[in-house]
């Protein structure tokens, strides 16, 4: 029986496998993620982290096995239900996917693109209400770039652009935030700052946060649960204090074919 204070399962992976043109990217993954959890996904390049994240908003369906998203098989969502589900899951991709020619407030507004009808989107993008602008301004205050409200996005620094992407995510009011290596191209200080902002936002919004990272230190320092993926398999799924040095070394160990021979 479920206890009243027990968190519900947001995502359940049951022997999930996914192949690209016959080549497996994920192999028989079993995983349970509860609502409100904060999880870092670590692993070497090509290990299957992005594929896993893309399965959480049903952008990718499993080749074998099944995924339950909010209690329902991901394959059984109708197009309308899928649209509603996706508009409730935000995504911060590695390249941030901002529209560079838009002003910051316009990029933030695109966070709710899944909820708007076409005329409403056009209205909000080109003639937003005062209320909307004030809402965006207060979101930008939360991420510390409120003075950039009217700036053209291409004129911002890399760190500021990341904050715009986070603001866009907040504007979406998601129940889950997916972040795919959002800090891979910034210095350690900015990376840590962004991770802290995302964790704070997820805490305040009571959202589930899944972030793929290359930086193990960040993952260990800030996340209560870390999933290590290697060659499409879950190598470990533990809290940072339970992960051994050996497990971490094995996670990033190069295969023999990947090792460059010297001389």
């Amino acid at each position: 029986m479920t206890k009243p204070d027990q968190k519900k399962e947001a995502f359940v992976f049951d022997k999930v496998q996914h192949c690209y043109s016959g080549v497996p990217a994920l192999e028989k993954i079993d995983l349970k993620i509860n609502e409100g959890e904060k999880i870092a996904i670590v692993g070497p390049s090509g290990s299957g982290k992005t594929t896993l994240l893309n399965m959480l908003n049903a952008s990718i369906q499993p080749t074998n096995g099944r995924i339950e998203i909010l209690g329902k098989d991901s394959n059984l969502y109708s197009p309308k239900e899928l649209k509603a589900l996706r508009s409730n899951i935000s995504l911060i991709p590695q390249n941030l996917a901002l529209v560079n020619s838009f002003r910051v407030w316009q990029n933030v507004i695109t966070g709710s693109i899944g909820d708007y009808s076409f005329p409403k989107l056009i209205k909000n993008l080109f003639a937003p209400s005062e209320k909307k602008l004030l809402e965006i301004h207060s979101i930008l205050e939360r991420v510390g770039i409120e003075e950039k409200l009217y700036s053209v996005t291409s004129t911002l620094s890399g760190g500021q652009k990341q904050r715009v992407a986070v603001a866009r995510s907040i504007f979406q009011s998601p129940s889950t935030i997916l972040a795919d290596e959002p800090v891979s191209s910034v210095d350690p200080a900015r990376a840590a700052s962004l991770v802290k902002i995302l964790l704070k936002v997820a805490e305040e919004e009571e959202a589930t946060l899944l972030m793929s990272l290359h930086n193990l230190d960040l993952a260990i320092k800030h996340f209560p649960r870390i999933i290590g993926i290697r060659n499409g398999n879950i190598h470990f799924d533990q809290s940072p204090d339970q992960i051994s040095q050996r497990q971490l070394e094995e996670l990033y160990e190069l295969k023999e074919s990947e090792i460059l021979q010297d001389g």
Binding site: S59, K83, R86, L91, P93, V99, T110, F118, L121
Partner: peptide, 19 residues
């Protein structure tokens, strides 16, 4: 990538293309 991101957060095909 931007178009795919909009698709992933629930936008329709036409709107994702447009924005």
């Amino acid at each position: 990538e931007t178009q795919s991101m909009f698709r992933a957060i629930g936008a329709g095909y036409f709107v994702s293309f447009l924005v």
